[in-house]
C-alpha cells in the first residue's frame, strides 16, 4: 500500500481483539490499573468480568500479580500507559515476568510524544529501549490498527513475555495487517534509499517516500513493527541494495530502533545511517502532532535527512 488510508484507533483494535481472544481461550485473563477506559481493556472487562482484574493504581504489582497468575499455564494480558507499564514497573517486568519467563503480554498504550497535552511526565520515549534490552522479551510496535490486531493475536499465541507499544492517537491505515513476529514488512520497494520506521512514523515515512518517488528517487520502506526479534536479513538486504538507511521512530534516538539499526549495520554491513526521532530531551504539553514536528520528527526533517543521505551516497549533488 502506498497512500495512507483512513485513521483508526489502535487501542480500540486491541480491546476488540482481546474480547475475541477471551472467547477463544476461557483461561485468558486481563489486568489493568485503573485505566481500562483508555487502554480499552474495558471491552474485555464488560464481557468477561470474572477474568478481568482492575487492580487500581499499582502498576508494578500488577506486573508481579500477572506473572504469578500466568505460571500455572494461563495467558495473561496486562495493560497500562507505557510510562507506567515500562517505566514505573521496569524491575518488576524484568524479574517477575522476564526472568521467570512468565506468559504475560504487556500491551502499553500511550507510548511516545503523541500523548500530547499531559506533557513530559506521561510521554515516555525510552520504553522501546528498556524493553528490548530484556532477555526473552518480544517487542512489537504496530504502525496501524490492522497490524495491532494481527500482532496482539500473534503475541497471545507465542509463549513467553511480550511488550506491545501502542499510541493514543488514531493512525492512518498503512498496512494490510499482514504481520509475522520476527519479520519486517516491506511496504514499498526501492533501490536508492531505505526508510526503516515504526509506529506513528510509518505513515510519515510512506508520505515522504511517495514525494521522493515523484522526483525520481526510489525509496524502500520497511515497517519494523517486530522490533525484537527483528528481521536482520531484511535490514542487511536493504543496506546492501540501497546503501543508506534513515530510521524514523517516535522514541529517543539514544536507545530505540535507530540504535538497533545503526549497531546492526555497523557490525555486519556498514552503510550511512541517520536517525529521525526524539533527541536527548523530555517532551512537554502540546498538540500531539505539533509535538512530533517540534521534537525533530517533522516531514521537512525527514526530507532533509533523506537528501543528506542521498548526497552522502553520491546519488545527488
Amino acid at each position: 500500500m502506498s497512500a495512507p488510508g483512513k485513521r483508526e484507533s489502535l487501542r480500540e483494535a486491541y480491546g476488540k481483539v482481546l474480547v475475541e481472544l477471551g472467547e477463544r481461550d476461557p483461561n485468558l485473563v486481563v489486568f489493568d490499573s485503573d485505566l481500562s477506559g483508555s487502554t480499552r481493556t474495558i471491552l474485555f472487562g464488560q464481557k468477561f468480568p470474572d477474568r478481568f482484574f482492575n487492580v487500581g493504581v499499582m502498576e508494578s504489582t500488577m506486573m508481579t500479580m500477572a506473572a504469578g497468575m500466568s505460571l500455572s499455564g494461563r495467558t495473561v494480558f496486562a495493560s497500562s500507559f507505557a510510562i507506567f507499564a515500562a517505566g514505573q514497573s521496569y524491575n518488576y517486568v524484568r524479574q517477575s515476568i522476564c526472568y521467570n519467563h512468565a506468559n504475560v503480554k504487556i500491551v502499553a498504550t500511550h507510548g511516545g510524544l503523541l500523548v500530547g497535552a499531559d506533557g513530559a511526565t506521561h510521554q515516555i520515549v525510552e520504553d522501546i529501549g528498556l524493553m528490548r534490552g530484556l532477555p526473552g522479551m518480544t517487542v512489537i510496535v504496530p504502525a496501524d490498527a490492522p497490524t495491532t490486531r494481527t500482532a496482539v493475536r500473534a503475541v497471545a499465541e507465542r509463549p513467553g513475555p511480550a511488550y506491545v507499544r501502542l499510541t493514543p492517537e488514531d493512525l492512518p491505515v498503512v498496512t494490510d495487517g499482514r504481520f509475522t513476529i520476527g519479520k519486517a514488512n516491506e511496504l514499498r520497494g526501492g533501490s536508492d534509499l531505505t526508510f526503516v520506521a515504526v509506529g506513528s512514523m510509518v505513515a510519515r515515512a510512506l508520505e515522504v517516500a511517495e514525494e521522493l518517488g515523484q522526483v525520481g528517487v526510489s525509496v524502500r520502506v520497511l515497517d519494523l513493527a517486530s522490533v525484537k526479534p527483528f528481521d536482520e536479513p531484511a535490514l542487511l538486504r536493504a543496506a546492501r541494495d540501497t546503501g543508506a538507511i534513515l530510521v524514523l521512530e517516535e522514541h529517543s534516538v539514544l536507545t530505540g530502533v535507530g540504535a538497533l539499526v545503526a549497531s546492526t549495520t555497523a557490525e555486519n554491513y556498514p552503510v550511512p545511517v541517520r536517525r529521525v526521532g526524539v533527541p536527548d530531551l523530555f517532551g512537554e504539553s502540546g498538540e500531539p502532532w505539533a509535538l512530533l514536528d517540534r521534537y525533530g520528527m517533522s516531514k521537512e526533517r525527514v526530507r532533509e535527512e533523506a537528501w543528506e543521505l542521498l548526497r552522502a551516497r553520491g546519488k545527488v549533488q
Binding site: G68, S70, L71
Partner: peptide
Amino acid sequence: RRHLPFVEASTGGLGQGIGMAVGMALDARL
C-alpha cells in the same frame, strides 16, 4: 524457578515474590 523443582517463583528483588504469590492465589481460586 526455571532450573529447580519445587521453586514456584524466581525471587530476589524484594516486594515481588509476594505479588506473584497473590497472583497465584487469584489463579488458583479462579
